[in-house]
Computed example of a mutant assay.
Amino acid sequence: MSTSDNFLVIEPSQELRFKGPFKDEVSSSSLTLTNTSDKKITFKIKTTAPKRYCVRPNQGIVEPGATVNIAVMLQPFDYDPAEKNKHKFMVQTMFLPEGEEVELETLWKTASPEQIMTSNKMRCVFELPADAQEDLVNRPEPKDMKMATEELRKLREDLSSARGENLQLREEGIRLRRQLSSAASAPGSAAADAAPADTTMYYVMAAVALVIGVIVGKLVM
């Protein structure tokens, strides 16, 4: 496959630049094709990311000595730094047969590899505004996001466990209070026995209150 550089001038020849933001707006760039030969040339624009771009016209004819302007529109998308400079464009060309009318679609479908000439590939460059670049720099990397999600999951598990312990301690305190109340009101219990029971109850409740305080402290943190 030969090159079209000798008779077709392409501007820009190396890069197509697109300015953001890209998320909600169409970003446009342009190509110009100038035929420096004395023959008619048909062209076709190709890209490595056809779903991302709208090219008008994407094929056509350049008369001898004439120039054709081509609009290249990048559709809105969520900018990914990993895609930077990966998209490329290429211009394919052929000389039109002299003295006969041809259908371009048919001509391109039936052309042999020896008839088709190609230009150098032009890479696409994405330019972000300063504020968008700052947001991109401060955005957590996927690895950091994964770590943050795992940490959040652990915190939720700790919170659920602390709530369970808190409920269990409350139930244990209620059970102890009921047991002590039943013992104090039992027939034949001596007044002298009430003092040790009350003292025991005091220590038990103090311990329960201390543990509950620790659990509540965990929940607050």
Rank of each mutant, 00 (worst) to 15 (best):
156 R>A: 03
180 L>M: 12
210 L>V: 11
194 A>T: 04
153 R>D: 02
129 P>C: 07
182 S>H: 07
152 L>H: 13
148 A>F: 02
204 V>R: 13
154 K>R: 15
149 T>A: 15
175 R>I: 01
161 S>D: 12
147 M>E: 01
195 A>S: 09
156 R>G: 03
204 V>E: 08
126 F>H: 08
180 L>I: 12
173 G>N: 14
158 D>P: 05
169 L>C: 08
137 V>F: 11
130 A>D: 07
142 P>G: 11
195 A>R: 09
134 E>C: 04
192 A>T: 08
192 A>L: 12
179 Q>T: 07
194 A>I: 07
194 A>W: 06
151 E>K: 14
147 M>F: 00
129 P>Q: 11
169 L>Y: 02
174 I>R: 10
160 S>V: 10
123 R>A: 08
135 D>F: 03
126 F>R: 04
172 E>I: 15
157 E>P: 06
206 A>S: 14
200 T>N: 09
144 D>W: 15
143 K>A: 14
210 L>M: 08
161 S>T: 00
184 A>G: 00
165 E>F: 08
145 M>G: 01
136 L>T: 04
145 M>I: 03
177 R>Y: 05
207 A>G: 12
169 L>P: 04
149 T>I: 15
137 V>W: 01
205 M>A: 08
151 E>A: 05
184 A>N: 01
210 L>Q: 08
163 R>F: 02
160 S>Q: 14
203 Y>A: 12
144 D>C: 02
174 I>G: 07
175 R>T: 15
192 A>G: 10
184 A>Y: 02
162 A>I: 06
189 S>E: 02
162 A>T: 11
148 A>S: 08
140 P>S: 11
167 L>I: 10
210 L>H: 06
180 L>V: 15
200 T>C: 10
187 P>F: 03
148 A>Q: 09
152 L>G: 05
152 L>I: 03
204 V>P: 00
137 V>R: 13
155 L>R: 06
124 C>D: 06
158 D>Y: 04
185 S>K: 08
180 L>H: 07
161 S>G: 09
134 E>L: 13
202 Y>E: 14
176 L>T: 13
186 A>M: 14
182 S>M: 13
125 V>I: 14
169 L>M: 14
154 K>L: 04
205 M>V: 14
129 P>V: 09
172 E>L: 11
168 Q>K: 15
168 Q>E: 01
151 E>W: 13
128 L>I: 06
140 P>V: 13
126 F>T: 00
173 G>E: 10
167 L>W: 15
127 E>K: 14
206 A>D: 01
